[in-house]
Design a protein around this nucleic acid. Structure first.
Length: 231
DNA sequence: GCGACAG
DNA sequence: ATCTTGTCGC
């Protein structure tokens, strides 16, 4: 798919935070124009640690929004170029994810990211970053909160707001009865209600969206193959 | 000041 | 994220 933005690699934590503060003013939010026909899931698997060593395998899987069948997919294996820092997580994953997205031959209607969007200390999580760089609607579904979260009801679909300065920036959503909820937040070009509805549509059976489940599996096998090819 | 902190 | 045995369940 086409990448419309340019990724800027920060040279320091302070610079990374400044980039987030600057970029967040470009975010736009609105209900999804139409029911998406294809949905992309993104995920990354790691080997090793630091920045110079280690490997990062990014995977993108595009699913038919109705049948969940895979209509396209792409991967990329690179060296991590930024350390893991909570809140700056995107700078570690975005480069490899962009490479994978670029290799896609289709234009997915929405990107589902494995991490946060607006539900972030500076309101600029991974999903926001990827949304801006691709110019496509995007949102995040995270397994653990970055902001204080409260416990929703035990039934599927129950949710509680994720608040930042009194504003609802995301929602803690139960996708499976009695199972740990996920944390959903808009990235770019979607609104919170659309994200939540889509997340529920993508979780007919498991806690996590089918998109991220498939991307997770692909990123792992890709990493494993890359490791065996290197050794 | 100290710890906690998406993946 | 990743490191890991057995174990419960469909």
């Amino acid at each position: 798919m086409e990448i419309v933005g340019t990724y800027v690699r920060p040279g320091s934590v302070a610079e990374a935070e400044a980039i987030q503060e600057e970029l967040r003013s470009r975010l736009r939010f609105a209900p999804l124009a139409a029911r998406p026909s294809t949905v992309a899931g993104l995920d990354v698997a790691y080997a090793g640690d630091g920045e110079g060593d280690g490997l990062v395998a990014a995977a993108v899987v595009v699913l038919d929004a109705v049948t969940f069948e895979v209509v396209d997919q792409a991967v990329s294996v690179e060296r991590p170029s930024f350390p893991y820092v909570p809140g700056l997580f995107a700078f570690r994953e975005v480069p490899a994810l962009l490479s994978a997205l670029r290799a896609l031959r289709t234009e997915p209607d929405v990107l589902v990211c494995d991490g946060h969007g607006l539900a972030h200390p500076r309101r600029f999580g991974l999903a926001c970053h990827l949304g801006l760089l691709t110019g496509r609607p995007s949102f995040g579904v995270a397994k653990t909160p970055l902001l204080p979260a409260s416990v929703p009801g035990a039934e599927r679909g129950a949710s509680t707001p994720l608040l930042l300065d009194g504003e609802e920036v995301g929602r803690t959503l139960r996708t499976r009865p009695g199972i740990r909820p996920v944390h959903v937040s808009p990235g770019h070009l979607v609104d919170l209600d659309s994200c939540v509805a889509l997340t529920l549509a993508l979780t007919p059976e498991y806690r996590l969206p089918e998109t991220t489940r498939k991307a997770d599996a692909l990123s792992r096998v890709t990493l494993k193959e890359a490791l065996s090819a290197t050794s």
